[in-house]
Design a binder for these strands. Sequence first.
DNA 1: TTTTTGACCAGATTTTGTTTTTAGTCAATT
DNA 2: AATTGACTAAAAACAAAATCTGGTCAAAAA
Lengths: 207, 207
Amino acid sequence: MARTKSIHNRAELIEEAAVELFSRYGYERTSIEDIAKHLGIGKGSVYLEFRTKEEILMRVVEKHALKIQAMMDERTENIKGSPLESLKETFLMCALMVYDYVTRDFHTPEALLYTSLQFKPRFSAFYVRKRERVLKFLKRAAEAGEISPRKANEKTAITFLMGAASLFPPYFNNYTESEQRMTRDELEQSAKALLKILVDGLRESNK
Amino acid sequence: MARTKSIHNRAELIEEAAVELFSRYGYERTSIEDIAKHLGIGKGSVYLEFRTKEEILMRVVEKHALKIQAMMDERTENIKGSPLESLKETFLMCALMVYDYVTRDFHTPEALLYTSLQFKPRFSAFYVRKRERVLKFLKRAAEAGEISPRKANEKTAITFLMGAASLFPPYFNNYTESEQRMTRDELEQSAKALLKILVDGLRESNK
DNA sequence: TTTTTGACCAGATTTTGTTTTTAGTCAATT
DNA sequence: AATTGACTAAAAACAAAATCTGGTCAAAAA
């Protein structure tokens, strides 16, 4: 007699278990068998859903990236007043979201997205998408007459992202006295000040 | 009969040999004895000039930092036109200077100044001094009426430095397509664009 | 017949024990 | 008084053995 699939959302359960275990123990120190045991299934079953361990990681990171992207999309679509002001607020929110993810547990796989040189090339799609969101903001700003249309290009988006890079991990806080990692409050203050200058700069470059 | 010191500038010679060998082989892979042999002196003599190996490294890095600082000082004193324009040019020059140092040979001890998490706390003085230079520029800009005097403070200097951080090592070039390390030309283009926005932002914040 | 499993394997990683290197000292030498 | 290099303790490099783990697949379960 034909056997029916016992669990339908197995892939999803594996993802959830992976988030849990990767966050607690880190990616390298979590084995496929750990994940299987955690769910009470056989190791082989994991490989019925994912081809490799890395694929699980990528899926987990992807999920996180999509959350942030969704937030950005939502805000890109519903711009009320000034697009540039909206860009500023969005990036502040984005920086804080990432901070919360990463500091909740430093082993969180999302941290890899920002810190791992090894995986960085694999995440390029994420960065490209982020760049596209910024470009969208710039185009809206051009439509609203806040910046010159010829400034609403990819190059300007990259420049903006480079300027804002220090608001994302790894947090190299060289110029402040404080020894240890930035606090959430420090980040918020820095982000506000830096984003203000960057956005004002975009505006000014108009003239 | 009392013996006289055979070499007067021994400390200096040791520094020069250290730069040479550290650059070629790296800090860890250069031993004190290597340095001594390179100069044809005894190992113990090195310790008559320096207390530890790390002290030699710090001296070497210090020397490099002083060179960059001297450049900045020279430009701070001789501001012809707009202080903000001068700040922009100075930072472009600074970024390129550092790039040349660091890429000449990746083992160059100066690279540590920017890349080593281990040594970073030891170099805080360098960063503070750099911050002070920026502050000086801001004060001159305030005097010239380019920015509001209340903006010529430490906090703004830090914000500016954070914004310009991606122009210095380690070069995290996330948002560009290119896989490998930034070329000098790419850096120059990026630096010009980013510094323009930052400086324009400082000016705009005035209003 | 289809789904699930865990024993199995090769390669990577960790551990353990040994050897070599080296930062720093100091009694002997110049 | 100035200089040296043999010396030491600790660290680093290395090698060998033991363990772990990503991925496979024939067999078991349904």
